[in-house]
Design a protein around this nucleic acid. Structure first.
Length: 272
DNA sequence: CGGGGCTCCTGTGCGC
DNA sequence: TGCGCACAGGAGCCCC
């Protein structure tokens, strides 16, 4: 479900409302979502801890907690396809509820139960994080570096954009949109991209992600922000989910093919 | 190295 | 109406 813009929106929403609040009580309805540590340990470590920071790396959301004994723990949340993290009232559909010191609740919802929560001392040491590629909106993500890494890859460009170890935070929607805006066929081998295509793609990745953050993300089905509301970038999609409909630029029919097992939408005329 | 298929889950929408 | 199938913002694994 959520890609970088959606997770960033949730991060910004939450840091306005949960900082300096203490976890009073934890109710777990589906223990499956907690990957580590064990249930009792998870509750014991989190209870009484104060949230002091909200972070994001790629699609991973990280809540930093300080315990009364001074120890720092990080609650990492990967929402996968249908995870939601909503602040407010108690949510009866949730998989986990945190009751906070002001009487409010932070609810983790997840229809498909594919999400993963961890409470760890070192979130940067998690394998998934250690192998993660650059943050596309950081200064360190440069065209030179991007091109150099693309040139080494023979994989289809669409597969590569979805590969979190190549670049962090892009998912199925924004991969489709950035390729459309750059006029690149999703099946094209990465190392065959021309200099022009590479620089267009580089620019569009930044542009699309920034715009999507401004519009608070894309709610195609399940995604909700930190307040439980939908994002509005859906209205700005050019190709994702538009199979059989007309291309907004040339009028051709949008096609859907499968790449890396994921639905891939593109305009056969605009993306050669 | 790259890619296809399958898995973890629940839910929705479609064609017959 | 009911059933079966395809598909869904993700990602790890095995196998070729």
């Amino acid at each position: 479900m959520p890609e970088l813009p959606e997770v960033e929106t949730i991060k910004r929403d939450l840091e306005k409302v949960i900082l300096n609040k203490k976890v009073i009580d934890i109710t777990i309805y589906k223990s499956k979502v907690i990957k580590e540590p064990s249930l009792p340990k998870f509750k014991q470590l989190l209870k009484g801890a104060t949230c002091i920071q909200v972070l994001r790396r790629g699609k991973l959301l990280i809540l930093s907690f300080r315990r009364e004994d001074g120890h720092r723990y990080y609650l990492t949340i990967h929402l996968r396809m249908t995870g939601q993290l909503v602040f407010g009232k108690k949510d009866l559909n949730s998989r986990l509820n945190l009751r906070l010191s002001d009487g409010s609740f932070l609810s983790y919802n997840d229809q498909r139960l594919l999400g993963e929560l961890r409470l760890v001392k070192d979130w940067q040491g998690l394998d998934f994080v250690r192998h993660m590629g650059p943050e596309p909106l950081n200064k360190g993500f440069t065209l030179t570096e991007f091109k150099k890494r693309l040139d080494r890859k023979k994989a289809k460009i669409k597969s590569l954009l979805l590969d979190q170890s190549f670049i962090a935070g892009i998912g199925n929607i924004y991969a489709a949109e950035t390729l459309f805006l750059s006029g690149i066929n999703p099946k094209k081998a990465a190392h065959r991209l021309t200099n022009i295509e590479t620089s267009r793609l580089f620019g569009n990745i930044k542009k699309v992600l920034r715009q999507a953050i401004i519009h608070r993300g894309t709610s195609f089905s399940n995604y909700r922000d930190g307040r439980g509301k939908k994002g509005s970038y859906l209205q700005r999609l050019f190709v994702y989910g538009r199979r059989g409909e007309s291309c907004f630029k040339c009028g051709s029919k949008i096609k859907r093919i499968s790449i890396s097992g994921r639905g891939t939408y593109f305009c056969p005329r605009c993306q050669k």
